[in-house]
Design a binder for these strands. Structure first.
Lengths: 102, 102
DNA sequence: AAAATATATCGTAATATTGCAATGAAACAA
DNA sequence: TTGTTTCATTGCAATATTACGATATATTTT
């Protein structure tokens, strides 16, 4: 029904479609350390909720987590983030400057 | 709880988070004429469903529709599309090339 | 005026998402 | 070993989304 490209764009966009996940990603970009527990405090959602959002981001490959003792260090997966950017830029930049048709 | 910027990013991303709306937008970019009814046939969803998706896109200002007799001509709102692009690019491009932290 | 066409809206069923308390699991500390 | 800390998972209630048939509305045609 939809092309693979359309489905991929929608999948990535959907994961950005919740402010909690936007906040998580911005925090991961901002911080050098990126322990999961800090996100819960910083953002103000319960730990299971954060964990659930992290899981979705991880499933799409946008972040990765490394166990460090009792803690888990999360961070952006730069390679996959770049791939996602190419896809979304292609979608966002498909407009050619011209007058609106109506 | 979230910044206005975070909420705005999420709102725009959410509307791209469904393949039907991605398909509609791609079609609007591709076609010169952009009558609503054609979208239903082209994409393969019932007319009320397309109409509903168009409404969401219109509510965010990304498209606009002009009544032309019995038909309605939809098209991208280039000005708002550009504004949205600035916002999303800022979000997508916040990464600085560096090694993953973990 | 009546019929036809194109779109919007309503109502509703099916499904998905969100948030969190409770609990489980794994690593560390005492 | 026992307790503590950190994170993941489960279960569930509340809410949102999606799709579409039925219907309403508006315009054009006959």
């Amino acid at each position: 029904m939809y092309s693979n490209q359309q489905k991929e764009i929608a999948l990535f966009a959907k994961v950005f479609g919740h402010p909690a996940r936007v906040a998580i990603l911005q925090q991961l970009f901002k911080m050098d350390t990126c322990y999961c527990g800090d996100l819960s405090e910083e953002i103000g959602l319960a730990q299971p909720t954060i964990s659930q959002h992290l899981k979705e981001l991880k499933n799409l490959g946008l972040i990765k987590g490394t166990v460090e003792g009792v803690k888990v260090c999360y961070c952006i997966d730069n390679e996959n983030w770049s791939k996602m950017k190419v896809l979304l830029h292609k979608f966002l930049d498909q407009d050619i400057p011209k007058a609106d048709c109506c």
